[in-house]
Each structure stands twice: as structure tokens, then as C-alpha cells.
Amino acid sequence: MKYIKQFSIILFISFIGEMAHHFIKLPIPASIYGIVIMFLCLLTKIVKLESVKETGDFLVKIMPMTFIPAAVGLLNVWDIIKVSLLEYILVTILSTILVMVVSGHISQLIIRHTDKKISIKNNKIHVKEARSHE
């Protein structure tokens, strides 16, 4: 019964997401409203972590499977794509790699920079402490 309850909560929030998508005229899908609503519910403790945890983890784990039908749908557009296949594939591959590298490195740089600052700060504190001990 525990899992039924957990799944009901997740389904209900998905449903609210659908309603939001229906009534708010923005190109934002139900799932995005849903993830924001679920996050806010957890944050405000309206939904407790333990009332969604196991079923949520299960859903996240099987997530790759939910893409199979859409991906197999590549069959349907094959005739349109094959005309400029090489260009399309090239743009897709290159841009995916480029976005990954740029976004990853920029955030990594900032993280290292902040960590350095923190460690310098901590060092200064250590030095001060050491001096005061002298």
C-alpha cells in the first residue's frame, strides 16, 4: 500500500502539471511544471520525502526506458532526414559535445575558484590562530 500511496502523490502532481500546462499559455510542458511543483512541495514539507522516496527512485531508475518509443519513432521521419543526413548528424554531434564541454568547464572553473577562495580564507584563519598561539 505504501507504494500505491507514493505513486498516487507523484501522479497527482503530474496531473496538476497537466492542468497548469493547459491553462497557462506558455510553451512549458506538464513535466516541467510538475518537477517545480514537487520540488516546492518537498521544500515546504507539504509532501514529506519519505512519502515519495522509494517509488520516485524507481521511476527515475526506469526513466531511460520511457524514451524507447519516441526514439523508435525515428523510423517515421527517416525519409525527411536522409536527404541532408550528413549535415544534420554533424550539427547534432558537434553541438552536443560543444555544449557539454563549455557548460561543464565554465561551472568547473567557477567551482574551483570559489573553493580556492574558501581555502585561502581558511588558511588565513589558520595563520591568525597560529599567530595568536605564539
Binding site: G17, A30, L59
Partner: peptide, 19 residues
Amino acid sequence: KYISYLLTPATVALAIPLY
């Protein structure tokens, strides 16, 4: 298609690790 229906609840569930 029934597998695809689980994509929205799965995306909603991503809020859990995020939290």
C-alpha cells in the same frame, strides 16, 4: 505508448534527488 506515459511522472520524480 504505455511506457512513454511514465515519462512525466518520472520527470516529476527528479525533484526528489534535487531536494
